[in-house]
């Protein structure tokens, strides 16, 4: 249940593009054609799904305060979290190189159409953002971290897929000259974000609608929900047993 909830939450509610507006550079630049967008989206899914769990391991066993205890008791009070950025980026850059080699080998057409943007994934804020959110949201297990990375990637993929299709469609629209190109794309992104707001506050009950930035409160409420649901399930099963 926890997995399913995190999965859908990361795709729709905390969508990388429409909720946090991360990864905009490649999102705006590579969304002219659906086929290219699909390629880049797939690359982002892959990179996120690999780097988030890897960075989770780094965070658990190297970076966070007290993470080095496994080396020995004398390392227990080391706090290396100031190294998060540089280590996360290093992991991401390595993984992107790997993806690039694989894509060049197996899909040369995609490689040429992605051009400079594939190496640029290394500095795509959505990728680093995924790892940093993983850290700040305190994701508990490796499985959940993988789930989170994968789902965030899928959310980003859906966003770029939708805008690419829209941009292919509005190619025939008579957009006023000053807005052509990036201008209209920004407006479309804003309008799409309105569409995605349908999911905002979903599952949380809407009580903390005014304080959506307060992540902690949200998580706590959800935990409580999960707890009450578990209790009710237990009650139901007990009733069945009694009968």
């Amino acid at each position: 249940m926890e997995h399913v909830e995190l999965f859908f939450k990361s795709i729709f509610i905390d969508n990388m593009v429409f909720a946090t507006f991360l990864g905009m550079c490649s999102y705006l630049a590579v969304s002219k054609k659906v086929s290219t967008a699909v390629g880049l989206g797939a690359a982002v899914i892959f990179v996120l799904a690999v780097t988030v769990p890897m960075n989770w391991l780094l965070d658990q066993y190297v970076l966070r305060p007290g993470a080095l205890t496994w080396l020995g008791a004398e390392y227990a009070d080391y706090d290396l979290s100031f190294l998060s950025f540089i280590l996360f980026i290093a992991t991401i850059a390595t993984m992107v190189q790997l993806v690039e080699i694989v894509v060049e080998k197996f899909a040369p057409a995609l490689y040429t159409s992605l051009g400079i943007f594939l190496p640029l994934i290394a500095v795509n804020c959505a990728i680093l953002g995924g790892s940093l959110f993983m850290q700040s949201r305190d994701i508990q297990t490796l499985g959940l971290a993988f789930n989170y990375g994968l789902a965030s990637g899928i959310g980003w993929f859906l966003a770029i897929l939708a805008i690419a299709a829209i941009r292919e469609k509005i190619r025939y629209s008579n957009v006023p000259a000053p807005l052509r190109g990036l201008g209209i794309t920004f407006i479309i992104t804003g309008l799409m974000a309105i569409g995605f707001m349908s999911f905002g506050g979903m599952l949380t009950g809407g009580e903390e609608k005014t304080e959506t930035t307060d992540e902690v409160a949200k998580v706590e409420v959800q935990k409580q929900d999960a707890a009450t649901e578990d209790e009710s399930l237990a009650e139901v099963s007990q009733e069945i047993n009694n009968k």
Binding site: V34, L161, A162, A165, I166, E168, K169, L191, M192, I194, G195, F196, M197, S198, F199, G200, G201, M202, L203, T204, G205, G206, K209
Partner: peptide
Amino acid sequence: FNPAYPEGVFLAILLMNVFAPT
């Protein structure tokens, strides 16, 4: 699922407007 919005129809249609070209 979204008690914040008692009416989901208009948001659902907007969402599908976004995905119609896809």
